[in-house]
Simulated assay, not measured.
Amino acid sequence: MTTHAPTADAALAATAVLPAVLPTAATVTVSDLVERPGRCLPGWTAALTALVAAAAGGWLLWRTGALPERLAGHTVLPEAPAPRDLTGLWGAVLLLGALTAFAAGGLTRGRPGKVWVLTRHGAYQGSVRETGLLWISPLLGRRRMDVSLRHWRSRAIETVDADGTPLHASVLIVWRVRDTARAAFAIDDHSRYLREQVECAVTRAVSRLPADDFRGSGPTLRDSERLGDQLTRLLAADMRPVGVEVFSAQPVRLEYAPEVAAAMRRAQVTALDARHRRAVLDDVLAAVAETVRGLTDRGLVQLDDYERKSLVRDLTVAFYTARGPAAEVPRK
């Protein structure tokens, strides 16, 4: 007997057929997770079903003679007729008992701001946002999730500004869960993820600008409205894939780190002092120019360049000295 080895063409044909025969596992990504309504019934229908089933089960128990006719010497039930088929009666009792347990076991309450996330064997089966008395199949797993508007104030986050100066920043976040499917299954803990993303967003936003600009009037982190808008945009973009909606992220505290706070206060006082002196000098020069122009326009004096410079110098010293304590920056 001769055995023929499979040819190369046969092997290629078998390889091509295998993908069509073998089932392909479905890959679920975050983009596939979208909240959808879960199945539920009004609670009164389940309650009514449970009551009717319980009453019918009690009647069948009475027919089987399992219920006592007398209690504490008093007749509470009429005499039951002789049953013909106890097996059928007990089967009906068990069936009605199971129906009662199934109907009563699914009763639950929906609350405003709370959502029931339903699962079966780990697979998402929908979300129930209805309120009041509800019936949800007891064969489904249920997980309550808070979708109300919440706020959270962060601790002091250590970061640095555009100049590398250490800062401590705290922000107030207003947020809520918008897509319960993504919040429940796209991330392990959306609340912890939000806290970590707040630190990342604060670090990115604060590092774009200096905390103070002592040498000019450029944009700084003291513009809390601009900083809050940047934080809100960054956090909203980071939290959208996990079903969390960020309404606002506003800085509530921004200060220098303790190790540089004293030095930065001295730099701030020095800058304020220089700015104040520059403003005083501008006022003095304006007054001197007005005085010299008034004298020459009225023809009171005739000055050449040397005399004009001398007059301007003397008037500047006089006016600046007359300011006295006004030229000094008040210090605490």
Score class of each variant (00 low, 15 high):
residue 239 M to G: 05
residue 70 R to T: 14
residue 54 A to Y: 14
residue 179 D to W: 13
residue 182 R to N: 01
residue 217 S to F: 10
residue 147 V to N: 01
residue 312 V to R: 12
residue 80 A to C: 02
residue 91 G to L: 15
residue 141 G to S: 04
residue 251 P to K: 07
residue 139 L to G: 00
residue 230 Q to C: 09
residue 218 G to C: 05
residue 34 V to G: 02
residue 269 V to F: 11
residue 106 G to Q: 05
residue 124 Y to E: 00
residue 62 W to Q: 07
residue 266 R to K: 07
residue 228 G to L: 12
residue 305 D to Y: 04
residue 30 V to Y: 09
residue 172 L to H: 06
residue 193 Y to A: 07
residue 263 A to V: 15
residue 252 V to I: 14
residue 256 Y to G: 02
residue 167 L to P: 05
residue 102 F to S: 00
residue 34 V to M: 02
residue 231 L to Y: 10
residue 48 L to G: 11
residue 270 T to G: 08
residue 64 T to N: 00
residue 290 E to N: 08
residue 100 T to P: 02
residue 235 L to K: 09
residue 119 T to D: 10
residue 29 T to H: 13
residue 257 A to I: 06
residue 246 V to G: 01
residue 241 P to A: 08
residue 130 E to K: 03
residue 4 H to C: 00
residue 191 S to F: 14
residue 64 T to L: 09
residue 31 S to Y: 09
residue 190 H to I: 02
residue 119 T to M: 03
residue 110 G to S: 03
residue 258 P to T: 07
residue 58 G to K: 08
residue 273 D to A: 15
residue 85 D to Q: 02
residue 252 V to D: 06
residue 256 Y to W: 14
residue 178 R to F: 12
residue 8 A to Q: 11
residue 44 W to M: 08
residue 3 T to R: 11
residue 163 D to W: 12
residue 52 V to H: 07
residue 134 L to E: 02
residue 218 G to R: 15
residue 220 T to P: 07
residue 84 R to K: 09
residue 69 E to V: 15
residue 97 G to R: 09
residue 58 G to I: 12
residue 84 R to A: 10
residue 170 S to D: 07
residue 43 G to F: 03
residue 140 L to W: 04
residue 47 A to Q: 12
residue 308 R to H: 11
residue 176 R to H: 14
residue 221 L to R: 07
residue 158 E to M: 01
residue 332 K to I: 13
residue 169 A to E: 08
residue 303 L to N: 01
residue 49 T to D: 05
residue 95 L to N: 01
residue 2 T to K: 07
residue 27 T to W: 12
residue 215 R to M: 10
residue 178 R to L: 11
residue 280 V to S: 08
residue 190 H to T: 00
residue 69 E to M: 10
residue 237 A to L: 10
residue 292 V to N: 01
residue 306 Y to M: 05
residue 226 R to F: 11
residue 145 M to H: 03
residue 211 A to V: 02
residue 33 L to N: 08
residue 178 R to P: 00
residue 288 V to E: 02
residue 141 G to M: 06
residue 193 Y to G: 00
residue 164 G to E: 09
residue 181 A to W: 06
residue 177 V to H: 02
residue 36 R to L: 08
residue 326 A to E: 15
residue 292 V to S: 02
residue 21 V to Y: 03
residue 197 Q to K: 11
